[in-house]
Every structure is written in C-alpha cells, then in structure tokens.
Design a protein around this nucleic acid. Structure first.
Lengths: 187, 187
DNA sequence: ATCGGTTGTTCCAGTTAGGAATAGTAGCCT
DNA sequence: AGGCTACTATTCCTAACTGGAACAACCGAT
C-alpha cells in the first residue's frame, strides 16, 4: 500500500489531471509552479519550486505520475503525466470525508489585536493598506475568472473563483467598517 | 543588532505583553500554548508546542524575554516575562508598514476546484459539512467574544473577534449560495 | 555577438507542523 | 492507602515546507 499523500501532493495531481484532458506531453516542474501561482495560490499556498520537485519525485516513486525525459542537445527536460493509479488515488481522496478546516494566517488581524500598542494613525494606515491590497488581489482573481468564462469544463474552477471574489468583497466591507469603528474610538 | 524575528515570535511577545499588565510571575510554554489555542488560532496558526519552546529560547537569547526557574522538589518550571527591549521591539514591529497579505489554506475550496471528478452528492456533502464546521467555529469564537465584553483594555481583541465573526458569517452565506448553485448544476 | 529575460533543475539551510515520549502533580474514587 | 485519570510541563524526532542561491541552456531583440 502506498504511503498517504499530503494535501499539496493532491493539489499537484489535480493540476496534472486538468492537463491530461489536453493532448500535451505532460508538464515540467517549472510549468506546475506557474499554474500553482495562477490558481492554487488563492485558495492554498503556492508551493515553492523545491517542494514541487521533491513532491514530483515522491509521486513518481509511488506510481502516481510518470516522467518522460525530453533529451535535446543541451539539456534534458522532464515532463510529468498523471497515471491511472494517480487519478484513481485523487478521486478516492476527493471522496474521503474530511474534517479539515481552513487555516488562516492573517497578519493584519494579528497586528490589530495589539492595536492598543499602536498610534491610532498607524492602525488606520494598516487597515487602509490592507483594503488596497485586497482590491489588487481581487482584480488578479478577476483576470483568472474571466479566463475561465462559462465553459463547461471550467465550471468548478469558475465556482471557486466566484467564491474567492465574494470572499474578498466581504473582507473589504468588513475592513471598511472596522476603519470606521477604530476612528470613532480614536476621538 | 538582533536578528529579525518571525511573525510568530511577535505573536508570542504580544501574549506576554498582555500578561505583563497583570502582576503574574510570567507564563510557561504550556500556558502560552493554551492562550494561543484560545485566541491566536482564529487569525493565525496556533504554534505547535515544540515551536513555542524553541521560539522562547530564541527570544531569550536575543533578550526579548527573561526566564525564571521555579524549582520545586520534583521539577523546575520555567516562566517567561517580556523585557522592555522586547516590548520596544514589538511596538517597533507594529509600526513598521507591511505588505504581508493573509495566507489561506482552504481544503474545501481546493476540493471543490476538482468537483468535476466527484459525485454531485459528494460535493454537496463536502459543502454542508463545511457549513456545520463553520457554525461550530463561530460559536467557539462567540464564547471568546463574550469573555472580552466591552472592557476598555480588551477593545482591540474585541474588534478582531467581531471581525472573525463577520468573516464566518460571510463564509457561511457564500457557501450556502454555492450549495444552491451546485445543486442546480447537478440537475 | 552578446545581453537580458525566460525556462528548467538542483541544492542547502533554516523554519514550521505534529506528534510521541517522558514525567511530575493533583484530585477523585473505592 | 492505592490506583486511576486528567492536567501540567518539557523535550525530542521526523517530515513538510520556505526561500532562496546556484547553475545552465534557450530564445529573442538590438
């Protein structure tokens, strides 16, 4: 029996499944990093390059992916494709009930927690900067959402992108209310 | 010059600052773990025991905290208090502008991304289980919020607790809408 | 032709997560 | 009194993960 994989492994398998719908030769570690940065980073962490490569090596060892070396004059490029064992393992994982709850690392909330140690202006700044960052992030996600369109095969990614957008909107309106409340405290 | 600390270090310093308002002998690593579980875990990760102790050792090396050993017959208990250097460092950190954005690890969104590989019922289950978990979490946070009351010295923690509550509410209503949309897809 | 940007991979050092192992303390039950 | 369980307190270990740097080839533009 294969060792249980980490959630990050399954995320990578997910990217490879999506690719296997097309008739590509598979993806390189580098390409997987790019796709992570485009999609995964909004709902999960985008793993570091080094981790992607170690993860791929492990997935290969356990037969979840196969690698093919593309040898040219100068260098060899390694492309990974998911195997049937891999997609079966992924599907099984998806159907396994989980009690994992989202993990949030919120540096702004953490700082606000200690707002008593800060100048009122600094608190205001902190929150306003965050609102700006939220808008940038929302716009980035909107680009992704637009790319997905309403195509049948991107239905679920589109759903998740909408979720992200709604989350950013909620977060912005909550933060704006906080700014208001903090200002009233300061007076 | 001391090495720059991690955000988690500052979070621990924050807990120690709060404690230093009272006339306690300081906190043990174990107590810090408990306080983390009560408050920090909603907005930041609650650090592992092992990490709290390593972090405390590092903070002591750099003079941010002092430890006093309480020796009894059987064992020695080590209590930590924040130093003036420590609280100065913390205040400086709080006033340093940051561009850190919250990090979200959302296992439910990650799975929904691959909803095309799942049975419609399993997707529905996934989201409903998540809504239930959200309600539990919200209730836990409500307990914390009630403890804070409207006392002057807990104004900022209360603000953050309200933030968390509003976030859970928003997340719940978004998820309920998703459940609806997914069901319509299934038909 | 060479220069900068992109593609592609590997390596390393440090940090973080999670849990097991160990052990004293304290109250409770019988 | 003896034993049980839960809590307090710390240390250790492994694996996951981050954030680079280092190295190299490839590709287009000037």
């Amino acid at each position: 029996m294969a060792a249980p994989l980490t959630t990050t492994s399954y995320a990578l398998l997910g990217l490879l499944v999506f690719d296997s719908g097309t008739e590509s030769e598979g993806l390189t570690g580098y390409e997987l990093k790019q796709r992570s940065d485009n999609t995964l980073r909004f709902y999960w962490v985008s793993p570091a390059m080094s981790q992607i490569y170690t993860e791929l090596a492990r997935l290969e060892r356990s037969g979840m992916v196969v690698a093919t070396d593309e040898v040219t004059a100068g260098r060899t490029t390694r492309r990974y494709r998911i195997t049937t064992a891999g997609s079966r393992a992924l599907t099984r994982w998806l159907h396994t009930a989980t009690d994992e709850f989202p993990t949030l690392k919120h540096p702004v909330a953490l700082r606000l927690l200690m707002g008593a140690l800060m100048d009122p202006d600094a608190v205001d700044d902190l929150l306003r900067t965050y609102v700006d960052a939220l808008r940038v992030r929302r716009a980035e996600l909107q680009v992704v959402r637009d790319m997905l369109g309403d195509a049948e095969e991107f239905r679920f990614p589109a759903l998740v992108a909408d979720w992200g957008r709604a989350y950013y909107d909620a977060e912005e309106s909550i933060t704006l209310q906080l700014i208001d409340r903090v200002r009233r405290l300061g007076r």
